[in-house]
């Protein structure tokens, strides 16, 4: 019973923090991008433009909710909710510190990967239900991309699972702590696995250079072409939360989670997450995007074989040199 209360309290807390701070991250990203582009970014609303995201959300809330006449109403309404749900749901099993975790699932990694994959369904639903050619093309691209990138993502996530011998995220972190290494140990399979996981995560959360499902210079708005107001906001928010949570997962699985000297675990976890989060945006505002087929070629020709080899390497390491773990 106390476990349930603990889970509920922290679940609500984490959800609230993620949701309320996502406006802050949006502000941060806009400032960051503006600085890269020799602009100022938001400065008007609130101190340093901090309330810009609040103003944006308020504006979007007031927008007329338009559903195209030819759209599939039920699916059209379901898609943004599902997208937001999947993105937020992942946050439940991320250990922000030994205590701050909503639910310490035994199969946390499986849950994360499964729920992350569901996002694609939400995106495709949105694209299909809009009954718009641009949205449909965006949905098609999203499915093609997800089917490809799911494989290296899962295989890369298997490396820490094999090394730690557990599917629970907090067990994996604890294993990393127990081996006095708060980052990437053993280096041999760990470092490349982190690289592949990070790339596949970019693709999963539709970030440049992998943002082809919503390539607005080609597909106008991609899947969100027909979405307005609060539903568009949900998609938009889901994307941010997905990136944020994805960064947290990568930090927990590969970078030692809460482990670190001189500061409480929670601070370390948040810091690691934010470093990854900023890198995502640094990449986003520096690179142009790939083409769909180049993306798939890269995945199947390089990432999938590499990740299979990494899983093999990790398994052999565990079997042959358990003393070096």
């Amino acid at each position: 019973m106390s476990g349930l209360v603990h889970g509920a309290v922290y679940g609500v807390l984490i959800l609230a923090v993620v949701l309320t701070t996502s406006g802050l991250w949006i502000w941060g990203e806009r400032k960051f991008a503006a600085r890269l582009q020799t602009r100022l970014g938001p400065t008007i609303v609130g101190p340093f433009g901090l309330l810009q995201a609040v103003a944006d959300v308020l504006k979007l809330l007031q927008k007329e909710d338009i559903i195209p006449a030819q759209a599939d109403r039920a699916l059209f309404n379901l898609a943004p909710v599902l997208a937001a749900f999947c993105a937020l749901g992942v946050a439940a099993v991320i250990p922000f510190s030994p205590d701050v975790i909503a639910s310490d699932l035994d199969v946390g990694v499986l849950y994360i990967l499964g729920l992350g994959a569901l996002t694609t369904i939400a995106i495709f639903l949105g694209g299909w239900a809009s009954n718009n050619k641009f949205a449909l093309l965006g949905g098609m691209r999203s499915v093609a991309q997800a089917i490809s990138y799911e494989i290296p993502l899962v295989l890369a996530a298997m490396v820490p699972v094999i090394l730690a011998g557990s599917l629970s995220v907090s067990d994996i972190v604890r294993w990393q702590v127990g081996h006095h290494m708060f980052a990437l140990w053993p280096i041999v399979p760990g470092l490349p696995a982190f690289g592949i996981f990070f790339m596949a995560m970019l693709a999963e959360s539709n970030r440049i250079p992998f943002d082809i499902p919503e390539a607005e210079s080609e597909l106008v708005g991609g899947i969100t072409t027909e979405y307005t107001g609060i539903k568009f906001t949900l998609f938009y928010m889901a994307e941010y939360v997905h990136t944020l949570v994805g960064s947290a997962v990568a930090a927990a699985l590969f970078l030692g989670g809460w482990d670190g000297p001189f500061a409480p675990g929670l601070h370390w976890m948040v810091a690691k997450t934010l470093v990854l989060f900023v890198s995502v945006y640094w990449i986003r505002w520096s690179l142009v995007r790939f083409r769909s087929d180049q993306l798939l070629t890269m995945c199947w020709r390089y990432l999938v074989p590499a990740s299979v080899l990494l899983v093999l390497a990790a398994a052999l390491w565990v079997q042959l040199f358990p003393e070096f773990l």
Binding site: R39, I208, D211, S217, W285
Partner: peptide, 21 residues
Amino acid sequence: LSIDLGGALGGGSTLFIHCFR
């Protein structure tokens, strides 16, 4: 062209705004 390649919300627009400067 780089906006066409990289999108208005991404790396493409960074080069675009630098060129405009």
